[in-house]
Simulated assay, not measured.
Amino acid sequence: MLTITRLTVYQLQLFLSSYRYFAPITFYLIIIVWIYSVVPNPVMGSYSATAVLLYLFASWLGLNFFFSEPQIQQTLTVILARRRTGAPQWNRFM
């Protein structure tokens, strides 16, 4: 359990230091301000637009999180995590 916590903290630190979260969050906030700045604000229209935009920007943010670590570094992280936890090395000969 401790290793999972450390890996999670490592991934979050890596993601936050890469600044790949800045574009999705900035665009989302700008569009939300623009949607709710319309004077006759239709409730259902703005709610549905906010829900769709939240889904799109959350998926963009998730993909940025997934691809924030280079492939070689990701492989080394997995190897070191398995070695420290004592997990079975089933792909040792690959």
Rank of each mutant, 00 (worst) to 15 (best):
M1W: 07
T3R: 09
I4R: 08
T5M: 13
R6L: 15
R6T: 12
L7R: 09
L7H: 07
V9M: 05
V9D: 06
L12C: 08
Q13T: 02
L14P: 07
S17K: 14
S18L: 12
S18K: 15
S18Y: 13
S18I: 13
S18A: 15
Y19T: 13
Y19F: 15
R20F: 13
A23R: 04
P24L: 03
P24I: 06
I25H: 08
T26H: 04
F27E: 03
Y28E: 15
Y28S: 15
Y28V: 11
L29Y: 14
I31S: 10
V33D: 01
W34T: 06
W34G: 04
I35H: 01
I35N: 01
I35E: 01
Y36M: 04
S37D: 12
S37M: 14
S37T: 13
V38R: 14
V38F: 12
V39R: 11
N41T: 13
P42R: 00
P42F: 04
V43T: 08
M44N: 05
S46Q: 02
Y47K: 02
Y47F: 06
S48M: 09
T50K: 00
T50M: 02
A51L: 12
V52T: 08
V52R: 09
L53Q: 08
L54K: 09
L54T: 15
Y55G: 06
F57S: 06
S59K: 03
S59P: 01
S59N: 02
W60G: 00
G62T: 01
L63Y: 02
F65Q: 09
F66R: 03
F66Q: 05
F67V: 02
P70C: 10
P70Y: 08
P70M: 11
P70F: 09
P70N: 10
P70A: 10
I72E: 10
Q73S: 08
T77Q: 03
V78H: 11
I79M: 02
I79R: 01
L80Y: 06
A81L: 02
R84H: 07
R84P: 03
T85Q: 02
G86K: 00
A87K: 09
A87I: 05
P88Q: 10
N91E: 11
R92C: 04
F93M: 10
F93S: 08
M94A: 15
